[in-house]
Write a protein that binds this DNA or RNA. Structure first.
Lengths: 193, 193
DNA sequence: CTCATTTCTTACCCTACATCAAGGCGCCAG
DNA sequence: CTGGCGCCTTGATGTAGGGTAAGAAATGAG
């Protein structure tokens, strides 16, 4: 389990054995079954995860209608968490669950203070990670504001070509912000050409 | 000019005189006239800003139609920049200009390395700032995906009650992702009740 | 294998918002 | 004061995508 994390850090961040041990201390390996929840929207006691195998997602149930909206997919080698709420001890803004059976390394609120002690390379690394997420989020917002559902679907195909086969369509629809019916129509239309 | 920045840091971050001096070194005061551009979408040489007075905005011209989409408004005491592109020397993802005549403190790519040298309190502070933006962005994305234009307008009123009077409606529309015509109709409808 | 449940597709109609077009109201320059 | 130019409003019409419903296909459980 931990080997995958070490491999992930290769070429990204120079790390001593002691540092890696310290990180292992605050990470708990866990198998998560498909549909199993890792975080409940609204709960205070909770975790984030590094995905070793399988795929998780974070999502909110926003509407009175109970409609789901997916914020992020996290396949292998992705981090997923609600940092904002976690660090402040606030109720989680969204839920996290497994889209496929998965192997993850869970971390709690103590993960971030630990990073502080591991030196500025670590801080910089995770800061960069956050910046990348932010940039991705901005691009997605713009796309949601300015592009049609079909254009967004094509962008999604480009961005996550491997995920498309692994995810049920209703989840892609929930990510794009359209109904499964609409996505079905879009795919039909694209197939015609 | 710098006094406003010092006041801003009060209660947020303990800071020595020497640290403040170091920050001053990398900040350039500037007056920006309404409509004046601080950053051009696509340019590589560029700045971010701390807004002392007035209001800036970041926006993209996404469509072939030349339609503007506003990512962020930055009134007094806000930071605005394209960190992601700036740190990597990439072309800016969006433009930044002044919505009102403004006084700002400009910083360049050298700002972030400096923060590293100022100790982990500083890093933590700006990390938190980034997390807050991220959380706000996520909320906005969800809102864009799940709420009607009217609901988003009401959220905007709640979130930025003072800004509403200062901004032309077409900019609020560009922020919400609707046409000025639609926003006008929404306001009319709300006024009736 | 078989039945049940979930997921996907297709069809029909409806709604929120866009687009287009015209007119009114500031606001500033001369 | 007057003409021009943004900005906001209002109306008429168009359209992307939603809601609903029903059937087909896939997936899963016993």
């Amino acid at each position: 389990m931990y080997e995958r994390l070490r491999a992930y850090f290769q070429n990204k961040l120079a790390m001593s054995e002691a540092q890696f041990e310290a990180i292992k201390q605050v990470l708990t390996p866990k198998s998560v079954r498909k549909h199993e929840l890792v975080v409940w929207q609204g709960e205070v006691e909770r975790h984030g995860a590094f995905v070793v195998k399988g795929c998780l997602r974070s999502y909110v149930v926003a509407d009175k209608k109970g409609k789901e909206h997916i914020i992020q997919f996290a396949p292998e080698n992705w981090w997923i968490s609600d940092q904002h709420s976690m660090l402040r001890g606030l109720p989680a803004m969204f839920s996290i669950d497994a889209v496929e059976d998965a192997e993850v390394l869970l971390f709690g609120p103590d993960f971030f203070p630990l990073l502080q002690t591991l030196g500025s390379d670590f801080q910089a690394f995770f800061h960069t990670l956050l910046q990348n997420s932010m940039a991705a989020m901005q691009r997605r917002l713009i796309s949601t504001l300015s592009a049609t559902a079909e254009e967004r679907y094509l962008e999604f195909l480009q961005m996550y070509p491997t995920l498309v086969q692994r995810l049920p369509q209703r989840m892609i629809a929930a990510y794009l912000g359209v109904t499964p019916e609409s996505l079905s129509r879009i795919r039909k239309e694209l197939a015609r050409s």
